[in-house]
């Protein structure tokens, strides 16, 4: 009855809404937690104390080095064909503009291919990408590589339509990358609405001029920590089931959804198991990653440090795509392991979440998955998730305590059962 006990405690019992309340307290107290900032380190210290007070074991901080970029003041004003102040969000690692800004004519394109075809027109201009949203992993390429591709054809800056499934004039941010040998130009996201408007304007033959000002600055890497807490295994303590989310966020909104939800349902999974007096055969290890948004920087250093024990990891789990009502578990692993996971998910019949999908993944756990460790993540309402992702709308108001309860129950049942089964998940 362990599964029912976990479900009852999480969804109907005394632990109801605990993960939501804990998350609300943290994000209201600390706010957004951008890599390299004092707020992130404050959040880490709060979590360290909270996990100890919660009675979890082996609570400790593992030091890592993470990037430090700050947004500064930023603005974009369309000067022609009419005055229009635009909402923008600079992209992580972008350089700033000169103090007087960059004022230039705009070239609007809807794809990298169109940019290549019209390369001679791009020199000395601001390239605006109005790429349609297909899905996040495909469309995010424009945010990540937009500056480099524009710089290659002589552009002065790039403005990229926010990678979002829905917009209420809400720009989204995120990390972007430069390339060795290619000039670095400022880059920011604009709203879906402005990108589409400018596309319409140029299709009618209008000339568009924008003045872009960005105070973005990159600083040397700073010290940070991955936060770790455990329920030490009773029989095979050296074997691990890792359950995780990331504590860092972008510097907009509160980072409640990305990835406060994932971090706090992962904590909740251990709290539920502890509250029931359960101790699995293997160690259940909670890791709250730092600097995930910059590309899994904290997680990569954890992997480097711990990969020598890779044979001891039965399953790695990360929730980083929302904790609304999950439709099931995404899993990556051998067919034998998938069959076992399907049996485990059947235990969640009482809350009707039993499906197993492909593509278990997470920026922070992919290192392990690519090295052969089975991996799992929650499949959630991605349309809703990418409406708020990396935008000012990512606040606790988006979250729903009842949905978090259900997500935590799924997370706790899966992590506990895999941690307590007699054998590790097969990899062949």
């Amino acid at each position: 009855d362990v599964a029912k006990a976990i479900i009852n405690l999480a969804v109907y019992g005394k632990a109801q809404n605990r993960s939501y309340e804990r998350l609300a307290l943290l994000v209201d107290t600390v706010g957004p937690r951008l890599s390299g900032t004092k707020s992130l380190e404050k959040a880490i210290q709060i979590m360290y104390q909270s996990l100890k007070q919660d009675g979890l074991e082996n609570v400790h901080l593992e030091p890592v080095k993470i990037p430090h970029w700050e947004r500064g003041e930023e603005s974009a004003v369309m000067l022609e064909p009419r005055m229009h102040k635009m909402a923008i969000l600079g992209l992580g690692s972008s350089i700033g503009t000169p103090p007087e800004g960059i004022t230039a004519e705009v070239l609007v394109v809807t794809s990298f291919d169109e940019l290549q075809r019209r390369a001679p027109e791009a020199r000395g201009k601001i390239v605006v990408y109005n790429q349609p949203y297909t899905n996040y992993s495909q469309t995010v390429q424009y945010r990540v590589q937009g500056a480099v591709e524009a710089a290659k054809v002589g552009a002065l800056a790039s403005l990229i339509r926010s990678v979002a499934s829905f917009s209420i004039y809400s720009p989204h941010t995120g990390v972007q990358e430069y390339q060795d040998g290619v000039p670095k130009i400022p880059t920011a996201c604009i709203t879906v609405e402005d990108a589409e408007m400018m596309s319409r304007m140029v299709s009618r033959g209008s000339r568009i001029v924008i003045q872009l000002k960005m105070g973005a600055k990159n600083y040397p890497d700073v010290d940070s920590f991955n936060t770790v807490a455990e329920i030490i295994g009773g029989k095979y303590p050296e074997q691990v089931v890792l359950v995780s989310g990331h504590l860092d966020s972008w510097d907009v909104g509160q980072g409640a959804m990305d990835d406060g939800g994932g971090a706090f349902i992962s904590w909740e999974a251990l709290s539920l198991i502890k509250d029931l007096g359960l101790r699995p055969k293997r160690t259940l290890r909670l890791v709250l990653w730092t600097a995930e948004e910059q590309g899994g920087i904290g997680a990569f250093q954890y992997y480097q440090l711990h990969k020598a024990n890779i044979s001891k990891y039965s399953l790695v789990m990360e929730s980083d795509s929302g904790t609304f009502l999950p439709s099931g578990l995404q899993f990556t692993g051998s067919e034998k392991a998938r069959a076992i996971i399907k049996e485990v998910m059947n235990l969640l019949q009482p809350i009707n979440i039993t499906q197993v999908f492909s593509d278990g993944e997470g920026t922070d756990i992919n290192f392990w998955i690519q090295a052969g460790v089975p991996g799992a993540s929650l499949l959630d309402d991605l349309y809703k998730y990418f409406s708020f992702h990396h935008s000012r709308g990512d606040t606790i108001t988006v979250m729903d305590p009842k949905q978090m309860n259900v997500a935590a129950a799924v997370w706790a049942v899966v992590s506990y059962v895999i941690a307590d089964m007699e054998e590790m998940l097969p990899r062949s």
Partner: peptide, 24 residues
């Protein structure tokens, strides 16, 4: 890639299913 050595299950899938059923 994987240095997981003892990947040989000692039990049949049916036995594993029964083990998991105990948690429900």
């Amino acid at each position: 890639k994987s240095i997981y050595r003892n990947d040989i299950s000692q039990r049949t899938f049916q036995e594993i299913k029964e083990e998991i059923a105990h948690y429900g």
